[in-house]
């Protein structure tokens, strides 16, 4: 009897770790508190997006009508009007930019992923592409101004397109490289085994297989370019007229774009122009989101190794 009591007493001295999880324990309390805090922070970070979307629909939706797409911007004291010319201008310039950046980016990506992935050239090119990813968009505008506007002597749509293409290029190139790398090695080997040259392998096997991934990159780049303002401010400037005038294409003229229109109308004291800026913002965000969603859908079809 005595022995037993002694044993249980000696056990009482030992400090057993408490293994059950209790919320009153300071450690678990701190843990729960921090979990809650990061959760709150994450939810708070989502507020701006919903606020932006709400304001766009609330203030921009009011003015939404078909005449927005067919008319040109109003002057200060006019009401009504639209920004059809700006939509056409944005599409033209993004189109020019894509025509430059997509072939350029994909050809370079083929080299980076297929022909010389480990070469010194490739690492230098990758480095330059990464530098361009972080390149401020306004400097792309400054460059296009110095290289194109000063050379041609006029603000124009191609100058804007060239500025945008600099911003698109690294996105297209780096995503295309990634998706080319995802093409299974055995598919390439099978093609080479059938006697195809490397060029044939690229055209018949690699590019078709990597297409969804590359298109995702192109879509992301187009969406980014469509929303850019800074590179257009002093390359395409702005205009109140359609890019097609009297049946001829006025490419070498200042060109309107949605983004620059929003910027110019955001700071004016005229209610009708401010309303128009919100409507233009709504249309611009819709365009950008649709392109993004198309890109996302395409990326689901992407091959994975």
């Amino acid at each position: 009897m005595n022995d037993e009591i002694e044993i249980s007493e000696s056990f009482a001295d030992v400090d057993f770790p408490r293994l059950e999880r209790s919320l009153r324990h300071p450690r678990t309390l701190l843990s729960a508190f921090l979990s809650l805090m990061t959760g709150v922070v994450t939810v708070v970070a989502c507020i701006p997006l919903f606020s932006v979307l709400f304001m766009l629909i609330y203030r921009g939706g009011k003015r939404l009508s078909l005449s927005l797409l067919t008319e040109t911007p109003p002057s200060a004291f006019e009401s009504g009007g639209g920004f059809g010319n700006a939509i056409v201008g944005t599409l033209t310039m993004v189109g020019i930019a894509a025509l430059i950046a997509v072939p350029f980016g994909i050809l370079a990506a083929v080299f980076l992923a297929e022909f010389g992935p480990k070469s010194k050239t490739a690492s230098a090119v990758r480095f330059c592409a990464k530098l361009l990813t972080g390149f401020p968009s306004i400097l792309a505008g400054v460059f296009a101004y110095a290289a194109v506007v000063l050379l041609t002597g006029t603000y124009s749509a191609p100058a804007g397109g060239i500025a945008l293409s600099i911003l698109m290029l690294p996105i297209v190139m780096l995503t295309a490289e990634e998706s080319i790398k995802m093409v299974p090695q055995k598919m390439k080997e099978a093609a080479i085994g059938m006697g195809a040259t490397q060029t044939q392998v690229v055209w018949r096997v690699i590019l078709p297989t990597a297409m969804p991934g590359m298109l995702t990159g192109v879509m992301l780049a187009v969406a980014r370019a469509a929303g850019e303002t800074a590179p257009l401010l002093f390359t395409a400037l702005n205009s109140n007229y359609w890019i097609v005038q009297d049946g001829s294409l006025a490419l070498m003229e200042p060109t309107a774009s949605l983004a620059v229109l929003i910027f110019n109308f955001s700071g004016v004291p005229f209610e009708s122009q401010i309303e128009l800026a919100w409507a233009a913002a709504l249309v611009l965000v819709l365009i950008v989101l649709v392109i993004n969603i198309v890109g996302q859908v395409l990326s689901r079809k992407r091959v994975t190794r």
Partner: peptide, 22 residues
Amino acid sequence: FKNIVELLAAIPSVVYGLWGIY
């Protein structure tokens, strides 16, 4: 949540500017 945060990056900066002003 990941998609929502990514969408934040998709909104053009000029739209953020407009939203900031008003």
